[in-house]
């Protein structure tokens, strides 16, 4: 059976096609101003027996395509368990929000917490800061890792942090050190949410920010926990959705 999962986030849309549970194709596009139009664009030429939508645009998509939907909480949990069976803690840092999910032994969500009210501590925060410092977002983590010492950033609000960074630059501070400080600020914010929800055991780290090596390294250092990341962490929600689409469809066939 071919199943599809589409994760319509506020910054990007990911789509995954599974052939009997094995990944066959993965696609990604920016959300832009027209999520439904972009989703259509992304799905062009793809064929599947069943599709399930997740992410903040899921309900719009449902109306348009008669697809079923699940929340990104459930999708990320399912994806994490697929790559790391037995996972009980998931940290997701995406473009516009972050969340921590706690699962029981059978993979069921038992608690979660989200930060989706401001950009602080998300991919968007890092993106804006990289831009302010003149770094490329893809190598921002590598640049931060080059710094020898910490430069503490006190503002967590994106707007205030931006002006703090600007004035640090004006004072002649080293941009790599500022980058390091910004990364650590993001990690610390995630850690306090992480500890509130689930304070022990390995952490499955998902979402686009999990691609950043310096965030991963600092997360492991500060939490003293094992950090598990699959090859394409930004696809995790869409993979989870496609898996659940497959499982739901099998249930129906029976």
């Amino acid at each position: 059976m071919i199943s599809a999962g589409i994760d319509i986030g506020s910054r990007s849309i990911e789509c995954v096609i599974l052939n009997n549970g094995k990944i066959r194709e993965m696609r990604k596009i920016d959300t832009g101003f027209d999520p439904i139009g972009q989703a259509k664009q992304l799905l062009k030429g793809l064929e599947f027996d069943t599709i399930l939508a997740t992410g903040y645009g899921r309900n719009l998509f449902e109306i348009e395509h008669e697809a079923t939907t699940i929340t990104e909480i459930k999708a990320h949990a399912r994806g994490a368990v697929c790559f790391f069976p037995g996972a009980i803690t998931v940290l997701d840092i995406g473009g516009q929000d972050s969340k921590v999910i706690k699962l029981n032994e059978s993979g069921k969500v038992i608690r979660f917490e989200m930060n989706d009210r401001c950009a602080a501590g998300t991919g968007k925060f890092l993106e804006i800061m990289a831009q302010t410092l003149g770094f490329n977002i893809d190598t921002f983590g590598i640049e931060a890792a080059k710094a020898k010492k910490d430069l503490k950033i006190s503002s967590m609000c994106t707007v205030f942090a931006e002006s703090e960074v600007t004035s640090l630059v004006a004072k002649g501070e080293n941009p790599n050190e500022i980058a390091r400080g910004l990364h650590i600020a993001v990690v610390k914010r995630a850690v306090s949410m992480l500890n509130r929800v689930s304070s022990q055991g390995p952490v499955v780290f998902t979402g686009g920010v999990a691609n950043n090596p310096f965030i991963r390294e600092q997360l492991a250092r500060i939490t003293k926990r094992e950090i598990l990341v699959q090859k394409t962490p930004e696809m995790n929600g869409a993979i989870g959705a496609a898996l659940i689409a497959m499982e739901q469809n099998k249930g129906k066939e029976k």
Partner: peptide, 12 residues
């Protein structure tokens, strides 16, 4: 934002 939390809660 509330809708996501509430839907995820109902999924539990």
């Amino acid at each position: 934002q509330l809708r996501v939390r509430i839907e995820a809660f109902l999924e539990m």
